[in-house]
Amino acid sequence: MWKWLHPYAKTENAYQLCLTLQPWLWVGALACLLIGSVWGLAFAPQDYQQGDSFRIIYIHVPSAILSMSTYVAMAVAALVGMVWQWRTAYMAMIAMAPVGAVMTFIALFTGAAWGKPMWGAWWVWDARLTSELILLFLYIGVIALYGTFEDKQQGGKAAGIMALVGVINVPIIHYSVEWWNTLHQGATISKFDNPSIAPEMLWPLLVNLLGFALFIAAVTTVRLRNEIIVREMHRPWVVKLAQKGEK
């Protein structure tokens, strides 16, 4: 498998891979998001308690799940970069970071908006919202650290270490916050405690989850291409590419 993956450590090959994957990712993402959202928002049955307001889960849940997964993906990329000394892996990590941060923000925003009808307040120190907020802080830390370095290669490595420190902390933070929450608030009804979700509601959710994942991948490839081009500006292959574009 490594033999197959190894050529993509070279930035030029990674760039070409992004270019090839990109249209498929965009088409897939748009199709899934369109189907999932229309299905979820218009055709899935109403919740018997929450009425139509539950439909926000079609955005909230995928973004919340993927905000965590993106962070883990960043840590994996950082580890790959560290072990095999791939510059491209760090670039991919940095490309993912703001996308993940935006996902976290969407999850927080939709969570807060959902909280208004549910709890009567825009912000409640609910365990899941709190750990999402801390996750957002972790993202901000990684992005800020990378941004402060003038030497982007060094910055990528530094941000990678921070992402790894963060990923060890994510489960600890998650459980500590959950435990803190039960201690201080008694049993708040958690939004996802419903033992099961009706299949008619679940299917659009899964389609949207896939759509969000493809969307993140698509944006990441665009950002990665950008990062490679900016960082390798003086390399001959980029110069050749630019000259080809001018003609």
Partner: peptide
């Protein structure tokens, strides 16, 4: 910025 989020579990416990 880097450290405060990481110290949160310690603070809680």
């Amino acid at each position: 910025l880097l450290l405060i989020p990481v110290f949160i579990p310690l603070l809680i416990f």
